[in-house]
Design a binder for these strands. Structure first.
Length: 157
DNA sequence: GCCAACGTTGGC
DNA sequence: GCCAACGTTGGC
């Protein structure tokens, strides 16, 4: 019996890794997450085929730029063991990795960016969307099926 | 276990 | 570049 499909939002700084980069490479290990809550979503709750809203953060107009999907089971983030990596974690041991990730595969770029401002303007239709919570900094967060549908309907507006 | 200091995120 | 919000670290 298939596990129920879930939906997520994953943030990336487009200067580091944008939806266009994902379109070009097709698939990418989501490395560098160093927050336990975000890690737990990837490690414990994600399943292959889950929907992903690809969000551009820390840029002139932050917002949802495209759609992707979870493309692998969780596995240890190799960058935590690479001394030269920005994501190196000297406290993590190979026999007990601290940081896990999933691969993410490109689905499509949205026909237009759905900006954070526009999401805020529709907050009443998005029922406590975690992205819009004050002070929210999570880089991986769950999206409900209803929120997913509402956001995609905004694309046509 | 408390909490001040520090580092990071990310909108603006 | 600023800084509010938040997470982590480490002394005690």
């Amino acid at each position: 019996m298939a596990t129920k499909m879930r939906y997520w939002l994953m943030k990336s700084e487009p200067e580091e890794f944008s939806i266009d980069t994902l379109a070009r490479v097709g698939r990418e290990p989501w490395s560098g997450v160093r927050n336990y809550q975000a890690r737990n979503y990837m490690m414990k709750d994600m399943g292959v085929g889950d929907g992903v809203l690809f969000y551009h953060s820390n840029t002139a107009i932050p917002g949802i730029a495209g759609l992707a999907e979870v493309a692998s089971a969780a596995y240890p983030d190799p960058t935590q063991f690479l001394k030269k990596s920005d994501y190196y974690d000297p406290a993590s041991r190979p026999d007990e990795p601290r940081w896990w990730l999933v691969d993410v595969a490109f689905k499509r770029k949205l026909s237009r960016l759905i900006a954070l401002d526009e999401l805020r303007a529709n907050a009443d239709r998005l029922d406590d969307f975690l992205l819009l919570r004050r002070g929210s900094r999570l880089s991986v967060l769950p999206v409900t099926a209803a929120q997913w549908r509402t956001i995609l309907s905004l694309e046509q507006a």
